Amino acid sequence: MTGAYVTAGEDYKRDMNYVTTRITADGRDGFAVEPGRYRLVVSRACPWANRAIIVRRLLGLEDVLSMGVAGPTHDARSWTFDLDPDGRDPVLGYERLQEAYFALDPDYPRGITVPAIVDVTTGKLVTNDFDQLTRDLSGEWTAYQREGAPDLFPADLHDEQESVMRRVFTEVNNGVYRCGFAGSQETYEAAYERLWTAMDWLEDRLATRRYLMGERITEADVRLFTTLVRFDPVYHGHFKCNRNKLTEMPNLWAYARDLFQTPGFGDTVDFDHIKAHYYVVHADINPTRIVPAGPSLDNWLEPHGRDGLPTDTWGSGGTAPGPVAEAERVDPAHTPLR
């Protein structure tokens, strides 16, 4: 994501107007699923992009959907490909993700956000709809998913899962931003109350369930994890979500460590990118742009103790993803998973 700012006196409202074109098996929007045709552009700093990275990895789509990684910081114009040796994405040839948006619409009026999928054949943005994007990786790319890929949207859990994901999004994923970008004491306190009501609900829910929906991992876990892994390094202090730390909530902290140590989750997380993004880009919140040295990360590898809960982690016939491709490994200096 990009373009979040404090507006004095106002509640934070996320702009949810995205390019909603879909890539589908039947190509009904003009974009059919096709190996090698599309490029997923992400930043490891962004929680919404982190979702897409995790889902792509869990489903084993690395060989059919390439991934470009933008740097953790950006200016008011766009995410940039400053991690690449010549400052250009090696597939798209772009210096800025903005170029793909303007190739679609030269007058594109909104924020330049990640995740984004770009049509390599034209260089144009196809979609930046982060919610639908991962749903389609699960539901439309089935012909190219790895053997043993988990079903992240099990039919028997559909209604309950949608309800849980809706609450996680409004109250937690977006709730931390509502706290961080509150424009008044009153709006901040209301946002803070909403966030911690939801966090307490999750703490209770996870007392008897290994995962949000019970015995197996679903996309609900992916969506919650990307906020939890950023909570103590960023949201607790930077966004003033400081009733307590994640490490002080026994069930949520054990659950977060459990997922972090699961292939496909922690191996996508770059803590240096996360901290650099929030503390450097959000100059209206952190005008000095000083990036905190802490917290210590080694505790993410401590035993989580959740093995005794009812478990069918990958679902019937499902398996864990294999090792991360060397080209997509997180810098070992940026993660405790060395």
Rank of each mutant, 00 (worst) to 15 (best):
A103M: 01
F102P: 00
R56Q: 14
Y94T: 03
G71M: 11
P72Y: 07
L83K: 10
G123F: 01
L133Y: 05
Q145D: 04
L83I: 06
T142N: 02
Y144T: 03
Y144D: 08
F81G: 04
D89T: 04
K124G: 01
P85D: 11
D82G: 13
D105W: 02
A103T: 04
P106H: 11
L92E: 06
L97M: 08
E95V: 03
I112G: 08
F81Q: 04
D89P: 06
M67A: 11
K124L: 01
V69H: 12
I117F: 02
Q98T: 00
D89V: 06
D75V: 08
L133D: 05
L58P: 07
P85W: 05
L58E: 09
L59P: 06
G71Q: 10
A70S: 15
L133V: 06
P72I: 09
R77L: 14
A100K: 03
R96V: 00
I112M: 13
V69S: 09
I117E: 02
D82Y: 01
R96L: 10
D105I: 03
L61C: 13
Q145Y: 03
L104G: 04
F130L: 08
V126S: 02
A76H: 08
D105M: 02
V118K: 01
F81D: 04
T73K: 05
E62I: 05
P90R: 02
N128Q: 07
W141C: 12
D136N: 15
V126P: 01
T80R: 14
L83A: 07
Y94A: 13
D86V: 03
